[in-house]
Structures are given as C-alpha cells and as structure tokens.
Nucleic acid binder design. Structure first.
Lengths: 148, 148
DNA sequence: TTATTCTCTATCACCTGAGTAGAGATTAAA
DNA sequence: TTTAATCTCTACTCAGGTGATAGAGAATAA
C-alpha cells in the first residue's frame, strides 16, 4: 500500500503544479485545499525540498513552488523518495537491490522471478508518467481507466 | 512490500508443488527445508487450507498436500489472500474497491488514475502466473529476468 | 492405547506510520 | 528597526500491525 505520506506528497505536488509558476503557495493553503494535516505536510514538503522537487521561500510572501516543470516530475521518483523501492521484495528491486536474508538460491527463486516482472511493469508506468500527464486536463474529461 | 507471511506461504506452496502428489508433507519438513519458523507456518498453512489451496491430513502419516494442481494456483490469489488487495490504494482496487475517505473527486483523481494502471499491470502478471509457470524447471535453467 | 500430526486461541514484543508540539531561523514590509 | 508572516527543525506520542511464540485440544494410524 501507498502510505498516506506519499499520497499527501503527490497531492501537494499536483496542487503546486496547477498554481501560477513562480508564485509561492502557502503550506496552509495546500493543507486546507488538499485536506492534509498541516504540521504533517510541513515535514513532507521539507522532504520534497531536500530531494529537489520543490523550492521554498521564507518570510512574508513566502511559500512553495515546484522546482521543476510538471512534465519532469515522475510518480516513480516521488514514491521511491517517500516510501522506498517500488519492488515488493528487496531482491526484486533495481534501484535498491538487497539480497533476501533467508534466500536459499536467488538464481532459481520463483518468487523473485515473478516479483521482478511486476516491478518492471510498475516502474515502466510510474517512471514514465509525470504530473503533467495526469493533471486535470478539464473537469469533465473522459476517464481513461475502466469503470469501477 | 510483500509480507514475510506471504513469502512463507509461497515458499510452502512451491515446496508442496514439488513433492509427490498425494504424499502428505509434514509441517516440520516444510519449515526446516524452507527456513520458516514452524509455529508461524502452522498458522499460514491453516489459512491456506481455509482458502482451499491445500489439504491437510491429521494423525500419523498426516501432513499437507496441494488441493489443486500447481498450474491452477496463481500468485495473485495467494498474495490477495494473505496480504490483501494488490492495488496500492483501496480506490484503485478491482477486487476490493473502497473509496478513499479523504478523496475530493475520484473521477478526476490523478493519483488513482496512475495507480489503477499499475494495479492492472501487476494483476495481469500475478493472475496469469501459476506456481507451475515458475517452478524450478531444472537447476541450471536460464534466468528469465535481466541481470542484477 | 499411544505416538504422531494437525488445529486453534491467546499472548507478546517490537517497529512503523501518522500525526502533534513547540521553539528557532529568515525575510518582507511597515 | 521592529513586527508579523513563513518556513525549518528536533523531539515526542500513540495506535496498530507484523512476526512471531506457547500450549492445550482434536483426530488418526498403527
């Protein structure tokens, strides 16, 4: 499962992406409009800043802006920075590979084999979908996915 | 991340899949060979039994066997039964859809849009890959995945 | 009757996720 | 120069879940 934190991070980024570029947005504004607990959001934005996704301005008229264009911020990047590797097992990760402690033979491990495919498929989507790709084109746009 | 429990469940199932059919395998045997804590494995096998994936026999010469052929047991099924829905968000799940509490407009939610694609891709793999598909064809078989 | 197995309920320690609190640093503007 | 507005940072709490363990009970083959 995606953590709340990652969900909040995406909401904040998407909100910033829709704001005027170079016009800082207040934490309080994001928190209120996106229904994110304010103090928690502070931590999240700090983290996003440290990872270079947003820029901050202090003092009066301060706030946050995106540090890159919305078509240069990918979901895969955001998820990895908040929740860690996309893979479901450390041994199936490409960006954060780690051997499973209790693995007997990684080369023939069936579980790893399947989960690597899943990881590859997931990252293929997440690393090629940017904020811009999914932003609110228009309120009444078609839904891409199948029905619920 | 996949839980330890789910990993253990898969190991147990794969081990059973490689045993003689109709020749019950002891919990203790699975536990030892697959490096799974025995008492924990008891719980897991019980759960797999309740979900109809394994059969159990009590008393002397008892043990466990698969309740279906290995090509009829899919990873998606196992993961869902142990860890819950494959989707990263309840609102992106098909088999266990639930609205996100704090969602403002599901129809235009960008996060959901992306995570549904990921879910679809993942379940496409996991629901079409059976134990038989990935079993140890031969000890020195080729590795399907890319290198580490 | 007994040894062997699975079955079931209860319990527990630890860790992580989610969130809160409050003082500190910086800046624009009056 | 002062003040109010903002972001920054460290520390803390608290609930719930994960990964087990313990031990009595029930079934069965020999």
């Amino acid at each position: 499962m995606l953590s709340q934190k990652a969900k909040y991070a995406m909401r904040a980024l998407l909100y910033l992406a829709q704001a005027e570029p170079d016009q800082p947005v207040l934490i309080g504004d994001i928190a209120e409009r996106q229904q994110v607990p304010r103090k928690f959001l502070e931590l999240i934005l700090l983290e996003l800043k440290r990872h270079g996704l947003v820029r901050s301005y202090r003092g009066k008229n301060g706030g946050y802006t995106l540090a890159r264009r919305a078509d240069e911020i990918f979901f895969g990047h955001v998820i990895r920075m908040i929740d860690g590797p996309l893979a479901q097992l450390p041994c199936a990760s490409k960006t954060a590979y780690r051997r499973c402690e209790d693995c007997q033979d990684e080369a023939t491990c069936a579980i790893r084999k399947v989960l690597r495919q899943v990881r590859d498929a997931s990252s293929h989507i997440l690393d090629h979908t940017s904020l811009a790709d999914v932003m609110n084109q228009r309120p009444t746009g078609l839904d891409l996915g199948a029905g619920i």
